[in-house]
Design a protein around this nucleic acid. Structure first.
Lengths: 191, 191
DNA sequence: CGTCTATTTGAATGTACTCAAAAGCGGTGG
DNA sequence: CCACCGCTTTTGAGTACATTCAAATAGACG
């Protein structure tokens, strides 16, 4: 049997019998994506949830003035989509692009609902997944409002060393919510 | 039968049979709390998840310099705890206090795990709850890094008019991550 | 090698903070 | 019911943080 990263991910929280595993495999859709491809465009409705088998992606918002804000970075073993759009079927606030050649596993909304029905233990799995995602985002809010840019930069590179290798300075700046020029001066001060 | 706000909340996402409802009632613990009481102290482990039957609460972090950051505000029909601490059993990053006389329904971690076992549809309920919480926090991150203080202030009062009535200017400032003095000058400019 | 983008540097400007003091407001006790 | 106390809010001056704009340098990639 093919070794999917996604099984390791799922088995962190639930265990599947052989028949469950077979069913699950039968619905999986793999997509190989080239570098710098857009997998979701801001303004369109996000109909897919992605799991990253390998590679990396970035989710970002572009505001009216053209300023980019990076909201999420995903590497191997992470899940990514514009959840707001996916759940509410409203235009996505985020675009998502690959940072390198990536293999994704794709779940569409309908299929996910079927999965919940057929294998209710996936309710538990995603309950735990969203619980952790909520905690992570809340910690990021705390970071944003209570630390200086310098602190947030060093915390970011300590927390996500594997991501730092794959993104540009400019993208880190847009994740922190500052200009690339200012981040450059912060780095200079640190060294 | 007593009319609990929490049933309306739960029935937004799942429906309970009479026997399920009876079981659920049997495990509910109500707490009436006076104004300005601390229900969770930063540094201690959060062992309870609270639902707000009525009243209002504020969750905030105090950093080494003594600066307060308001992370969450909860009114009737909201859930609140330090989820990071509750899930990981680590010292809480947040204190939680009542803003007025409030009635809470209390769930401890063990009881919640029992509830998941006995009534697995609660996995679904909390899956949806955390999904929405995650979306909300991610939108707040986007707000924080992509809007000016003035924009964030007006968005806040538009989005949470019922909360605005119950909190001080100082607390709104600490929610937005600015000083009360600066928020005061922003308000002046707006009028 | 040449082109395009990212990064750095610096000057000028605007945003937000600190500190201090005054004014406003709500609750409490006499 | 009023006077006082403590906390919140406002105001202003001075400073620090962060942006904008422009230009130079460095890197990545075909």
């Amino acid at each position: 049997m093919k070794e999917y990263q996604i099984f390791k991910n799922i088995q962190k929280h639930i265990s599947l019998s052989n028949t469950e595993r077979e069913f699950f495999i039968s619905i999986l859709i793999e997509k190989d994506i080239a570098k710098k491809e857009i997998v979701l465009e801001q303004g369109s409705v996000s109909s897919k949830l992605y799991f990253v088998e390998f590679g990396s992606l970035r989710a970002f918002n572009v505001n009216e003035e053209g300023r980019e804000s990076t909201i999420m970075l995903a590497v191997q073993d992470w899940w990514i989509t514009d959840m707001y759009s996916f759940v509410n079927k409203k235009p996505a606030l985020l675009s998502i692009e690959t940072l390198e050649v990536s293999r994704l596993i794709e779940f569409d909304f309908i299929m996910l609902e079927k999965l919940y029905k057929r294998l209710p233990k996936f309710e538990r799995f995603f309950r735990i997944l969203f619980q952790n995602a909520y905690i992570r985002e809340q910690l990021r809010v705390l970071d944003n409002i209570s630390f200086t840019t310098e602190q947030r930069y060093t915390r970011f590179i300590d927390k996500y060393p594997q991501i730092v290798k794959k993104v540009t300075q400019k993208q880190i700046a847009s994740y922190l919510g500052v200009t690339p020029e200012f981040l450059s001066s912060v780095k200079k001060k640190l060294s």
